[in-house]
Design a protein around this nucleic acid. Sequence first.
DNA 1: TACGTCGATTGCGATTAATA
DNA 2: TATTAATCGCAATCGACGTA
Length: 268
Amino acid sequence: MLFHTFLHIPGVGDRIEQMLWRNRIFTWDDFLESPLSQRLVGRRYRTMVKYIERSKQHQDNVYFFKKLLPSRELWRLFHHFRERAACLDIESIYVNSSHQVTVIGLYGQNQMKSFVNGQNIEDFKDEIARYDLLITYNGVCFDLPVLRQQFKMSFPHVHVDLRFFLKRLGYTGGLKGIEREFGIIRPDEVKGLSGYDAVLLWKKYQKGNQQALSTLLQYNTHDTQNLYYLMARSYELMFRRIFAGHDHSFTLGPEETTIACLPTCRQS
DNA sequence: TACGTCGATTGCGATTAATA
DNA sequence: TATTAATCGCAATCGACGTA
């Protein structure tokens, strides 16, 4: 999707991008090679050539595109930069008028890492710095503000909040409900657990119940890993949607259809 | 329940394209 | 060249929404 994107070029909005696609100019190379380009965009042509050439030079620099793309279109970076993407989900308890993080789950590069308050939670800062792209559900409103407050840290990453991205595709409601709509079935041990249960499990753990922590970590692991599956599926759905009707011969390339199906996801 | 922010909408000015 | 139309980008407002 990155190479099909023109929206990041100053002076180019939805309409110009759509117009280019309608005229079978689907990629940066199409634009540079097509004799139509100059006629279609007039005086903008030189600016567009300059930015496309810069885009090709910076195609491994996610922050180049973060600066230029509108935030609602950052999802387009997911597939190209998926090796540097991590899913994030936190659990917390509400004490003294603020949220205190109990568990942080981070899934990226096919690895799940859990950080537990009082054990290894300080390692989280180093681990998150290894990634450039964060995927959360409602993270802009909850996870990231809580982490910023508790750890006094900033997140320079590209951030895709699936809550708003999925809403554009017609999926609303909490994470668990959307998982069911996508056919994800959780194992019996954590099926039916909610964020409130996570609070209760943490309190049990504080009273010495190790099994409660184990269940809490399992719950958080499913929350976190399922985000990756939802990101991959919704990316493909949006890709298909925005190109639908433009050209029947233009379909997803094999690199755009690879959906990472996690071993923890049981699909119906 | 409190919190935080997004998307949709609207309005406005600047820029560019098309036309006479 | 002048005028009009189309488009972009920004800011402000407000309601909606999901998290633990």
